[in-house]
Design a protein around this nucleic acid. Structure first.
Length: 278
DNA sequence: AACTGGGGCAACCGCGAAACC
DNA sequence: CGGTTTCGCGGTTGCCCCAGT
């Protein structure tokens, strides 16, 4: 049989959950927990597939879920993280306690739609700097051009931070990095993503730059060992990777900004733009 | 009152990864 | 190991509501 067959039994119910079903699931999970989702429906007395139960619990019933509109801070966090990592909803959600990937994904999709609609309805192209969500292309342009090697003047999220976030995982403590604070790295990154760009640059020198340097030093021997190359080669590769990521990030941010302004819209334009991008 | 089109959102589907045996 | 099952993610669908007609 096909191995994705959890939902093809006759009796399995689908669609929206009734309050009674919710009650059964909550009752079961709170007393027994969930070991194996595929066993949950039977044990809880539900005509659902395990996958559906899991989804319902994760996205709606679990006790630590957070409801209601996104706060401005959360919104900013989402925008910044999305600018840095793209559609990695689960990752973005992991930085927003109580929010689910689904919720963030839905929010983002309707948010984009709204932005684009709004932009195409007023084609005046005035008040370009009104929208603080996006970095202006005037600032991003020189940085878009890979021939300029100068550090970014303005970013949505410090790019090296983003890179390392995935390399080391969130559980490493700042203490392990030689910082006195006991804060976890992901908390520091959380703070970093909330800062506006001006504040970031103020903070950067005192707090984040040392952190990043420590991370680099910490990662280097591991990288060298893992890939069996020289330290110089490793540094070279790392620089290239950072450069590529910076370019990617600024491009997507720029593209989004242009799109929101209504300057570009259709698929043709985007593919043309992409093609012209090194 | 009936229709309809769009928005918001919950849920589904397929796939790749991870876990299990 | 290899085969099978389960999990988790991200794209997508489809349902419900509501405003406009």
């Amino acid at each position: 049989m096909g191995h994705h067959s959890c939902c093809n039994q006759q009796k399995v119910k689908r669609g929206l959950w009734s309050p009674e079903e919710d009650e059964k699931l909550v009752q079961y999970i709170t007393t027994h927990g969930y070991g194996c989702w595929s066993e949950v429906p039977q044990k809880a007395g539900l005509q659902r597939c395990g996958k559906s139960c899991r989804l319902r619990w994760i996205n709606y019933l679990r006790p630590d879920i957070r409801r209601g509109r996104f706060t401005p801070e959360e919104e900013k966090m989402i925008i910044n993280l999305h600018g840095a990592v793209g559609n990695r909803w689960a990752h973005i959600a992991s930085h927003l306690p109580g929010r689910t990937d689904n919720e963030i994904k839905n929010y983002w999709n309707s948010w984009i739609k709204k932005k684009i609609r709004k932009a195409s309805s007023n084609n005046t192209k005035t008040n370009l700097n009104q929208d603080s969500h996006f970095t202006s292309p005037q600032i991003l342009f020189p940085y878009l051009n890979l021939s300029t090697k100068s550090p970014p003047q303005d970013t949505l999220l410090p790019l090296k931070t983003t890179t390392f976030m995935f390399d080391i995982g969130p559980t490493m403590t700042a203490e392990a990095l030689g910082l006195t604070s006991n804060t976890r790295v992901d908390h520091i990154l959380h703070e970093a993503a909330l800062l506006n760009q001006e504040t970031w640059h103020q903070q950067e020198m005192v707090q984040f730059t040392p952190l990043m340097e420590n991370l680099e030093n910490l990662m280097l021997p591991m990288d060298v060992q893992n890939s069996a190359i020289s330290e110089a080669e490793c540094l070279q590769q790392r620089n290239e990777m950072n450069e590529w990521i910076e370019a990617q990030n600024s491009f997507s941010g720029y593209f989004l900004w242009e799109q929101a302004q209504g300057n570009i819209g259709g698929e043709e334009e985007s593919s043309t733009l992409l093609a012209s991008f090194p």
